[in-house]
Design a protein around this nucleic acid. Structure first.
Lengths: 253, 253
DNA sequence: ACTTGACCCTCACGTAACGGCAGGCTCCAC
DNA sequence: GTGGAGCCTGCCGTTACGTGAGGGTCAAGT
């Protein structure tokens, strides 16, 4: 027979207003309502709230929390593992900051002034590396790019393994279709392209047909991407690019 | 000779807008401006920014950061020490969360459902203990109370030592004035009361005369406070209370 | 001397994640 | 059967910026 807002609020150490808010934005709606409109939270709701608070504590925006809690592959254990890894990383980060502080204290004790770069290096774990800057340039700092970057940050080593495994499978299927002589604008190739697009959407960001076209073009233009495909079959890169465009055409985009 | 907003932004890994914002709210105004109105940040500004970002990272509101950076006893070393301690605490907290996650994983593996209390105990480090609940009741959950609670949280063991030392000194002075037979509404006693008020304002929260009166009344009403004063001189508690009121009267409040 | 692109300025409105209050039901314990 | 605790739905306020708009500034190239 569930818990009332007040009870849940006390249990979880949040305010009633917060629960109302989570209900409003659809992040956590109580399983039921009483006849008089009172919210009734179930045990499942409590578990969801637990995860919400956890990710929130680690600084995730609520909208993103909703996404990662609603993705299909999200059972309790997956989340616990992910949370465990996120915690480890966070602790590592704080340790680095501790070390930086200690260095600063030493420098201070010796009367050595810090250079501006030294001053902020401890915050610099997300500084634009080469690759990021380039992607930014290519993608024009779009929403999708940001989304991707953040999604990547949440992925555990396990996630990465599954991600690359899935990606490799699709690539192999492409290679097979290509060597079998199936046309790039044929049913099979287009379905594979669609699968590819879904794969990206699931793991990285909301990949529209238009973005997907752009990706395909990028594959042939950039030798680093081509390096992944050509060894499997020369010409595969172009084939994939064409299949992507055919698939987008089919979808009317 | 100085850095532009853009340079500082790149160095510190924040946006220009953020620096503009800090300037607007007076948290970090550049030491100079060029003739054409461009912001010029000095090395001292950079150091301040470093501290700002640090405290921000640890979740302090900007307004509070301004306060702790502007308090008189705030030299670089003090801050570095404080930051070091805050980091240690933070790491400890995250370790506890890690342990809680591990317990949850075990329970999950064994198929044991968690009780609602177990679910959220890891977030419960700020649950209302007896004392806090009482203070809340007394003070009616005022702004001052919240301010105090947060200030306390930033204090290192060293801070506490100095705090209690200062407090003890004032108390002794009060005791001396009392045993010397000086009147509670006399110059000396009132000055001591004012010092007491300043002490609270400096360390805990903005203590108005009205609040101060309330504190004085509380001292005589609550035996636990009286226990601190009476051993020094019987009747001292009442004396302090009267001095506080006299001082408030003198200030016209 | 002139343009052009990168950088800077000041408004000014938008957003996320709630806090806090008003005005009004609902529940249950005495 | 009534009073107080708890719940409801708006709705406006706040913090820490994001995101342009509209317009000066500056060094480098032509």
């Amino acid at each position: 027979m569930g818990y009332s807002v007040g009870q849940v609020a006390r249990l979880a150490g949040v305010t009633v207003r917060t629960l109302h808010h989570y209900d409003e934005i659809g992040l956590l709606s109580p399983g039921q309502r009483t006849a008089s409109g009172y919210r009734r939270y179930t045990d499942a709701d409590l578990e969801r709230l637990q995860h919400v608070l956890f990710y929130r504590e680690l600084g995730f925006p609520l909208e993103e929390i909703a996404v990662i809690l609603d993705e299909p592959s999200s059972d309790t254990l997956t989340h616990l593992r992910r949370q465990h890894e996120l915690l480890s990383r966070r602790i590592g980060r704080l340790r680095e900051m501790t070390a930086a502080i200690e260095r600063a204290m030493e420098a201070n004790a010796m009367g050595i002034p810090l250079t501006p770069e030294e001053r902020f290096e401890l915050f610099g774990d997300f500084r634009p590396e080469e690759h990021q800057a380039e992607a930014e340039e290519r993608w024009g700092g779009t929403e999708a790019f940001e989304q991707s970057r953040r999604r990547m940050a949440t992925m555990t080593k396990d996630d990465w393994k599954r991600f690359t495994a899935e990606a490799a499978r699709t690539t192999e299927d492409f290679a097979k279709a290509f060597t079998d002589g199936l046309p790039a604008d044929g049913e099979v190739a287009m379905d594979l392209a669609e699968e590819h697009r879904a794969h990206i959407t699931r793991w990285c960001y909301d990949c529209s047909y238009e973005i997907h076209r752009g990706l395909g073009d990028m594959y042939v233009a950039d030798p680093r991407f081509a390096a992944n495909y050509e060894p499997l079959a020369p010409g595969l890169t172009q084939y994939i690019r064409d299949a992507i465009h055919a698939n987008a055409d089919r979808a009317g985009a």
